[in-house]
Design a binder for these strands. Structure first.
Lengths: 351, 351
DNA sequence: ATGAAAGCGCTAACAC
DNA sequence: GTGTTAGCGCTTTCAT
C-alpha cells in the first residue's frame, strides 16, 4: 500500500517530500532538480538558484538511500566495538569511548558518516556484515581481542578493514595502534629505576596488545638482569566488573611485589584500591604505572603515572588507513609513539 | 559504466554479490531467493534451507539500502552530539560518552542501528538532516545547549526527536533527563548540613539542565534562610579546555566561599585543582559536590561526592521514547530520579 | 510453491 | 539547457 497521502494521524506520518514534488513546484523536470541540487553546471544558474531555494525552504533533502543505490556509492564507515558476551558489559572503558569520539571527529571532518555498533568479541567476523550488506564501505574495529585469526580471514575475504591494536607477526590485516612493546618497556624501566625489583604485570596476555606490552616488560626486566616471575603475572581482563574480584584476590593473596605494571588506567585504579584494602600504600609500598593516560588520570588518587596513548591522533590515522585502502593503496600497519607520563603513583626517582 | 566485472585491481574491487547471483547458482528466481532469505512460509522448506546455506557460504548479505528503499523502512537512529564551534572541542566529557555507549547498547538490543554524528551547538536544527534525507528514522540529541527554540521548531516540523536534557516550561519536544532541580537541591542541602554557608555554584546557567540545577540550589538555600549570592555563581562551560582558565581565575580571585556545587564531575575536578593551587584544601577549607557520578568519580583525589545520574537506564529511556513516538504514541518528557553519592570531597556530616 | 513484472527515489546517458 | 528513459538491488503484488 504505497504512498497513501491520507490522514497523517500519527505525529510522524507526514509523507516525505521527494524530488518529484520539488520538480512539480518549480515547474521543471526531476532531472533538472537533480542536477540543480548537485550543483551541476549544466543547468541554468537562475534555475539552479530557484530550485535550491525551494528545496531549502521546504526542508527537502535528497534521499540518500536512493542516491547511494543509484550511484553505487556510500559514505558511511562502520565503527565496531566488541563486547565480552560472557560478562555482557556495556562500553565503559574511557579509553575505548575516547577512541570512538576521536574517530567520530575524524570522519565528520572528512564528510563521512559513522555507524556505531557492537559485536560479540568471539565473533569479530560478524562485523563484516556492515560491508556485505552495503551499509558501510568499510569497518574500523576497536581492538583485536582474542581472534586475530578471524581478522586475518576477514581481510582475505577482501573486507576493507582497519583494526585498532598492535601489530603481530604474520598479520594480514591493517592495524593502527600505539607502540605496545615500548609502552610496556617504558613502564617497567621506570619502576626499575625506582629501585623496584618485584614487578607484577596485570593484563590478559591473550590480547595482542597486552601480549606486546608483556614483551616490553620482559625485555626491560632482562636489561636489568631479572627474569619475569610467572607468579606475578595476573591475567585480568579490561572489564572492571570481571577484573575487580581477580585483582582483589591477587592483592589479598600475594604480598611479594613492590610495583605493578597495569594494562589500563582503570585496572591501575582497581589495583590501587585493592592494595589499600590489603593495607599497603601507593606508591610507598607498591608503585603503580597505568596505561592509556585517560583525561582523568591526572585527577586520580594518587594521580597516575601512565603510558600515554595517542588518542587524539588515533581517529585520523584509523580513518586515513581505511580510506587509503579504499583508494587501492597498499597501506601498512602503523605503530604510533607512546611516552611515559610521570605522576604520583610512581613518581620520578629522587635524584 | 555499470558493473564492469573486469580487473579487480584494487583490493576492495570485488563486485558485491547480489540476489541475482544467488538465484542463478541455486537455479531459482530472485523472488524465491528473496522469500527464502526473509523466511517466508511460501517457499518450500527444502529450497529455503538450500538458498540460505548458499547465501551464508558465499557471505552474501541482502543489500539493505535497496531493501529499505523498496520497503520504505529504515532501522537506523541518528545520535547527535553537539560541539561548541568556538572551542572546537572534541567529544571528551565522560558523561556524554557514557550516554552514547548506553544508547548504543539499547539500540543494539532492539535491532536498530546507530548513526553517530556531531553538529554545531549553534545549529542544532541541522540534526534534522538525518531524518529529511532518510538516513535515519529519528534523532536522539545529547543535550539542549543554548537552543531550546531550535528544538521546538524541529518538533513543529514533525521531526521524530528525543533530547537528553531537562524539562523546561513550554517545551514542545520530548526530553528525557535526570531530575536536575532535585540534583541541585540535594547537593546544596548536603553542603548546608555540613555547616557550609557560602556555597558557590559552577555551571553555565544558559544551558537548561544547569538552569534547573541552579533552581534547586536556590531553593535549598532559601530553605536555610539564605539568598544566592550572584558573586558566587560562575558561568563555566562543560568543555575543560575553556573552563580551566575560568575556574582558576575564580578560585584565585575569591576566597569567600566554603563549598562549591559543580555541574559536572570534570568541573569538580578542575575546581579542586584550582583550589589547591590557591592554597586551600578539599574538603577541609572548601567542600565540593560534583555532578554525574561518572564511573571514575570514586577513584578521584579526593573521591567525589556527586549527584548520580542514571546513565545505564538513560539509553533505554531515550530509545523507547523515540520508538514510542514513531508508533504514534503521545510520549511525554521524562524526568528520572537522581541521588546523592557521598564520598570524601564532601563527606557525610559527623553525627 | 514459484516466476514475471512493476516500482521504491534517485542519477546519468542519451536525446532534442 | 532541459526532458525522457533506463536502471541501481531489492520486495511484492499478481499470475500461473
Amino acid at each position: 500500500m504505497p504512498k497513501s497521502n491520507a490522514s497523517p494521524d500519527s505525529a510522524s506520518e507526514q509523507r516525505r517530500l521527494q524530488m518529484a514534488d520539488i520538480a512539480r513546484l518549480a515547474g521543471v523536470s526531476v532531472s533538472t532538480v537533480s542536477r540543480a541540487l548537485n550543483g551541476s553546471e549544466l543547468v541554468n544558474a537562475e534555475t539552479r538558484q530557484r530550485v535550491a531555494e525551494l528545496a531549502r525552504s521546504l526542508n527537502y533533502s535528497i534521499n540518500l538511500g536512493a542516491r547511494n543505490l543509484r550511484r553505487q556509492e556510500n559514505k558511511t564507515v562502520a565503527v565496531v566495538v566488541p563486547y565480552d558476551a560472557k560478562s555482557r558489559q556495556h562500553i565503559s572503558d574511557p579509553f575505548f569511548l575516547s577512541i570512538v569520539g576521536s574517530i567520530a571527529d575524524a570522519l565528520t571532518d572528512r564528510g563521512y558518516d559513522m555507524l556505531l555498533s557492537r559485536v560479540d568479541a568471539e565473533r569479530l567476523d560478524l562485523a563484516s556484515q556492515w560491508f556485505d550488506s552495503g551499509k558501510a564501505l568499510g569497518v574500523i574495529l576497536i581492538g583485536q581481542w582474542r581472534h586475530h585469526d578471524q581478522l586475518n580471514e576477514m581481510t582475505l575475504r577482501k573486507l576493507p578493514l582497519v583494526v585498532w591494536g598492535g601489530e603481530m607477526p604474520q598479520q594480514l590485516y591493517c592495524s593502527v595502534g600505539g607502540d605496545n612493546v615500548l609502552g610496556g618497556a617504558l613502564a617497567t624501566r621506570h619502576l626499575l629505576a625506582l629501585g623496584r625489583r618485584r614487578i607484577a604485570f596485570v593484563g590478559d596476555a591473550q590480547l595482542p596488545e597486552v601480549w606486546l606490552r608483556r614483551q616490553g616488560y620482559a625485555q626491560a626486566l632482562a636489561e636489568a638482569g631479572l627474569a619475569p616471575d610467572p607468579a606475578l603475572e595476573l591475567a585480568a581482563p579490561f572489564e572492571p566488573g570481571v577484573a575487580t574480584a581477580i585483582v582483589q584476590d591477587f592483592c589479598a593473596t600475594r604480598r611479594d611485589f613492590d610495583a605493578v605494571v597495569c594494562c589500563s588506567d582503570v585496572l591501575a585504579l582497581l589495583t590501587i584500591q585493592a592494595l589499600r584494602a590489603s593495607g599497603r600504600s601507593v606508591p610507598h609500598d607498591v608503585a603503580i604505572v597505568g596505561y592509556d593516560d585517560m583525561p582523568l588520570a591526572a585527577y586520580c588518587d594518587p594521580p597516575l603515572s601512565t603510558v600515554h596513548q595517542p588518542v587524539a591522533e588515533a581517529g585520523a590515522e584509523l580513518v586515513e588507513a581505511l580510506l587509503g585502502q579504499l583508494r587501492g593503496e597498499r597501506v601498512g600497519s602503523r605503530t604510533m609513539p607512546v611516552y611515559l607520563k610521570l605522576r604520583q603513583s610512581a613518581p620520578a626517582p629522587a635524584s
